[in-house]
Design a protein around this nucleic acid. Structure first.
Lengths: 152, 152
DNA sequence: TTTGAGTTGTTAATGTTTTTCAATAAAAAT
DNA sequence: ATTTTTATTGAAAAACATTAACAACTCAAA
């Protein structure tokens, strides 16, 4: 599960950081859009609806902060925008990764959970001496809809 | 194996494109540095040594072309630079992917061949209807040297 | 309250990549 | 060979996302 608003406020206080409306709003927008992969600009526009005085630089700064606190994940689809989504941890605070399936036709992004990568990580640690800490997997292809349209 | 100079020239002619020194040089630089992951700027500087009249815009344009022809691969290490390396195909022109191991301490990049992803791709096609065409795997961790230094 | 450090919004700066456009070079036609 | 056609080039400007600078502000502790 992802962090809720009160946990976030508490976390800020613990770190000696100030609880501001701007910071809470950025987390809220990302929490309310799981698996949506928002750009900084999109987060900015969504917050501006109810809070027009927010600045874009603050959104960027808060994104950096949330990344450092490991509350959000960065996704780069190589379309010129870096995107962000709320991060998921289980009750033991172990991070649950999901892979991204990117449709090369319509650019839709789907997520897929799988622990197969654990096996790959083990294999790498054995074969070459590299201690794997984290991974990122992107699969490119055709989504259900575009795959159907292809057959003509 | 990667494409050689003459195959590249022939490929350009087939596509109705012109064979220019600039295009050949960009391919050469990348062919001569397998697994080095050069940035556009680095490619530009390397070519300038023997061919000072080349322009940076041409390097970017040629990179685009080589990507479209599937002769090079793009690697984004999220350090602000997009990098490129010569692509490998076997005799059946099937692309052989390798994964990238990125050391979070010294930023060294290692490559690792593994076909385990084929299994993951099959699993995805079965579970959700998504036709996987290509994949990209990045593993973050500690390389041998940095892992040794860590133990203190 | 008052105080002080941290945070903010605005604006300018940064750095990579793309576009524009006249000049040039490659391939085709003569 | 020479001319013609067309793509390609280099230089400079533009575009773009992201970061930095700085004065104004706001949170939280005294």
């Amino acid at each position: 599960m992802s962090v809720d608003k009160d946990e976030f406020k508490e976390l800020l206080r613990q770190k000696g950081l100030k609880v501001t409306t701007q910071r809470v709003r950025v987390l809220e927008v990302l929490s309310n859009s799981p698996d949506i992969h928002l750009t900084a600009e999109e987060i900015y526009e969504l917050i501006k609806v109810d809070f027009p005085e927010i600045g874009l630089a603050t959104v960027y700064r808060t994104i950096q902060l949330l990344l450092e606190l490991d509350l959000i994940d960065r996704i780069n689809l190589d379309d010129g925008f870096v995107r962000y989504e709320i991060s998921n941890h289980d009750e033991n605070s172990k991070k649950h990764h999901h892979h991204h399936l990117i449709c090369v036709k319509c650019s839709k992004v789907l997520s897929f959970e799988d622990d197969l990568l654990d096996e790959l990580e083990k294999r790498i640690m054995d074969h070459i001496s590299f201690k794997v800490l984290d991974h990122e997997v992107k699969l490119y292809g055709l989504c259900k809809d575009c795959s159907a349209k292809e057959k003509d």
